[in-house]
Write a protein that binds this DNA or RNA. Sequence first.
DNA 1: AGATTGAGCGGCA
DNA 2: TGCCGCTCAATCT
Length: 162
Amino acid sequence: MYKNNFLYKEIVKINNYYIGLEFRDNYLVRCSIPLPKEEILKYNFGKINNKYTDIAKLIYKLYFCEIDDFYVRKHINHKLLVSEFTFKVLNSIKNIKKGKTITYGVLAKLLNTSPRAVGKALNKNPLPLIYPCHRVVKKNDLGGYSFGIKYKIELLKREGAI
DNA sequence: AGATTGAGCGGCA
DNA sequence: TGCCGCTCAATCT
């Protein structure tokens, strides 16, 4: 059976921030947080094209805490192309509300796994912000963030969690 | 198929 | 504080 696997990648520029988008068959399957130009180039999102500005704008607003992730998950046609385990982890963090956090350890217990396995899954979250992995923190610290810890700190501050 | 590696954690000095 | 051992999915070799 032939599988029509359209791949489309682009970078959208909004107010000096650059947002990477990757689509497969019209589903958003990977994105970046809004980043400066030097940083977005590291993540292999292709070239600046500004085709899906509407979707990028939602991610932009999400980053600046103007809308919430529940709304965005409902309005962006997306798909999590990840392993079964990673899916389980990402699916469970949908319930963490803005302004709240959970630790890797507590989440691991809920899912009957280990904290490091949870961190590993979150590290490869293909849809950051939309699946709010920044709300999962280390017990006595903040833990890591794949785009850099400074972004996690910014986000949690803006959300009022720290 | 076995070894190593983490966005971690609890215990013990 | 600092180190050590445990953990387990993912990623090497």
